[in-house]
Design a protein around this nucleic acid. Structure first.
Lengths: 184, 184
DNA sequence: AGCATTAGCTAAGAGCATTAGCTTTAAGGC
DNA sequence: GCCTTAAAGCTAATGCTCTTAGCTAATGCT
């Protein structure tokens, strides 16, 4: 039994490899263990159970997404920032559709996930600063932006768009709707 | 062994009862069988397997949603029709959040589901008629509408909105964005 | 070098989906 | 009104999953 140097992050890495390669439904502890080169029960040394692993995957995705959005919004403001955020959002999902679709809803109170979500929200709020919305309106605007981006993302990631028309064009229309609506 | 008069629809009824009461994660064939008053393997006389049952639940939700949207849009056109559709969409999700969250993505080619989705799309397209969009733009507009409504719906149904601000108000902003964007 | 910690293992149990094969009910033709 | 037949239900059994318990061996610290 040579040690393989696993860690919670390593388990998440293996899990994401499985999800990316075979889809969210293929996420099983034995598959993850095989990918990590370890027997299944060994995973419990690093992760409490399957539910927690799912939450850690969600956390990872939120972190990766946050990083992209943060990079995209640097040095931009107003409509330009919102467009950049929405395009970066979709670009992440196009690059990692299975990973995005594997995100767990049902937020058991995982504090690190809450922190990561707050950082993502912070980026969105910063991008909305130029519109000079007051406190509550800012929240409503952020929700509208997030709903649009997330809705399109999930539908695209899970193959919900049947017709052959170009998805870029559809998404640009959606972005126009959001920026236009923010300008009031 | 008295007969209980089960049918595929009856199995879906039982499944939806479980999902509504205990959430999508509680959907298990033994739970459905218990709810239906039958031993687990008996379900296979009506449903091919668990994956098919999931698809049938999705089908049922799409059908129910289509009916609501159809009712809502009657006698309306333009912005009024779009507003009515979006409000009806959310009202369904508020009434049946677990059921909505249980919808299966990953559309294995279930022809009845495709037909139901087409009918739902037809209602949306009809509501967009007043904007006088040509063929491709019509599809893009329908996708934007659907993304917005679905994104907000899923986030709300799975508890994704953390802050205490009023959700009605957020959704009305989203509706305004969509109608405004459609008017160009 | 010695010791505590911990990453890994095997063995075992419970719950799930699914298949096979049997029994009984209900429906329809004579 | 029976008798056949299709189907609705059952029990038994298999294999996969997650999970726990308890052991062994590798690592890190002093």
């Amino acid at each position: 039994m040579p040690r393989v140097g696993l860690s919670p992050d390593g388990v998440v890495d293996a899990a994401i490899t499985i999800v990316d390669a075979e889809g969210p439904a293929a996420l099983t502890l034995s598959a993850v263990a095989a990918q990590a080169g370890v027997a299944t029960p060994s995973l419990y040394k690093h992760v409490r159970n399957l539910a927690e692993l799912r939450r850690l995957i969600t956390l990872r995705v939120v972190q990766e997404l946050t990083e992209r959005l943060g990079d995209a919004v640097l040095g931009r403001s107003g409509d330009d920032a919102v467009r950049a955020i929405m395009r970066a959002y979709r670009s992440y999902v196009v690059d990692h559709p299975a990973r995005y679709a594997a995100m767990d809803q049902a937020p058991d109170p995982e504090p690190r996930l809450e922190a990561a979500s707050d950082r993502l929200l912070g980026i969105i709020l910063a991008a909305l600063r130029a519109y000079e919305l007051d406190g509550s309106d800012l929240v409503h605007a952020a929700r509208a932006l997030r709903s649009s981006a997330h809705g399109f993302a999930i539908l695209e990631a899970s193959g919900g768009f049947g017709l052959p028309e170009d998805l870029e064009t559809s998404y640009e229309l959606l972005i126009t709707m959001v920026t236009g609506g923010l300008r009031r």
